[in-house]
Computed example of a mutant assay.
Amino acid sequence: MTIAFEHGIELPQPPHQVFALLADYSKVPLWLKRCEGVAKASSGPNKVGDKLRYAYCESGRHGLMDGVITAYDQDRHMAYRYFDKMMAVVVEFHMEPSGEGTRLTHLIDITPHSFMAKLMSPVFKMKLPKQTIQTTENIRDLLAKEAVSL
């Protein structure tokens, strides 16, 4: 059983600015509040197949998830798959031109694997919409702050 939620917003920035923010792993903790950091195992430009490590803190519990870039279409689409012994999480961002700005769609899909994660599924399902909406609003706010500082 997977738990999924998708949310879209309109942003005044063009797709290349939105994509650049999302592709900068050093900035992920600025818009994803439970994230303590994302590190890429290799150097160079991001590409499909690159390995990632995601550090997080959820309800006071620190953890790590391994990940991989599964889609990377410049200024249009990026996707990741993160996994640990408890679950697999697919994270996607779609960017479409919308007037002078961007229509950003953010999708999260969680597949619980462990017995404990399966027991927690109702909690994940309840929290996922609010967390996904808050994440997109954080992205909006960060883009606005970056525009002011230019």
Rank of each mutant, 00 (worst) to 15 (best):
H7E: 12
M95E: 08
S114F: 04
A71Y: 02
K130P: 00
P15K: 05
A55E: 12
M120A: 14
M95A: 07
D50K: 09
R140I: 01
K47N: 06
G101V: 02
K33M: 08
S42F: 01
S42P: 01
G37I: 00
D75S: 09
M65G: 00
Y54R: 04
K51N: 12
K127A: 13
F19A: 01
K27N: 07
S42N: 08
L150D: 07
H16V: 08
P97K: 08
C57I: 05
K118C: 01
Y82A: 10
T105K: 09
L119Y: 00
K47C: 07
I139V: 14
K127D: 11
P12E: 11
M116H: 03
K127R: 14
V89E: 04
M95G: 00
V123R: 13
L142C: 01
F93S: 11
Y80L: 11
A23T: 14
M126H: 10
A144D: 09
L107W: 09
H16D: 14
K85I: 10
V28L: 13
H94N: 13
L104F: 03
A41R: 14
H113K: 12
A88M: 14
M126E: 06
L142G: 06
V89G: 00
T132V: 13
M65S: 15
E58L: 15
G49S: 06
H106A: 08
E10G: 08
N46W: 04
D84M: 08
V18D: 01
M116E: 06
T111F: 02
G37K: 07
N46S: 15
I110H: 02
G37R: 05
C57Y: 00
S114I: 03
S121Y: 00
M1W: 04
T111Q: 15
